[in-house]
């Protein structure tokens, strides 16, 4: 069971959180013209790295805040977590 540090609440066990996927995927700006390829890249295509992965977690059984985490997909080590408006320590 992973131990995840919610930037608002502190360290908690994984079963309080739900996963939100790749955090580097940026939703295209609303109302802006966008090519089909760029749109599909947003909806379907992923970098899927082995190693450091910037991802979203939701403290769903806690403060209900979404936040960012930097985690190794091969070892599951979590390097850092931060609020959405902060930058992860790289």
């Amino acid at each position: 069971m992973l131990e995840i540090k919610c930037p608002y609440c502190g360290k908690r066990s994984q079963n309080e959180f739900s996963y939100g996927g790749d955090a580097t995927v940026k939703r295209p700006t609303l109302g802006e013209e966008i090519s089909t390829e760029d749109w599909d890249n947003f909806v379907y295509f992923r970098d899927n790295p082995r190693g450091k992965h910037t991802e979203l977690w939701h403290h769903v059984s806690g403060c209900r805040q979404w936040f960012k985490a930097s985690r190794d997909t091969a070892t599951h080590e979590i390097f850092d977590t931060c609020k959405m408006n902060e930058a992860l320590n790289e």
């Binding site: 069971m1 992973l2 994984q14 079963n15 739900s18 996963y19 996927g21 790749d22 899927n48 082995r50 992965h53 991802e55 985690r71 997909t73 091969a74 070892t75 599951h76």
Partner: peptide, 13 residues
């Protein structure tokens, strides 16, 4: 297990 992983092992939950 519910999060991206390249580890050939999982967790207890």
């Amino acid at each position: 297990d519910g999060y991206n992983s390249y580890a050939q092992r999982g967790n207890m939950p």
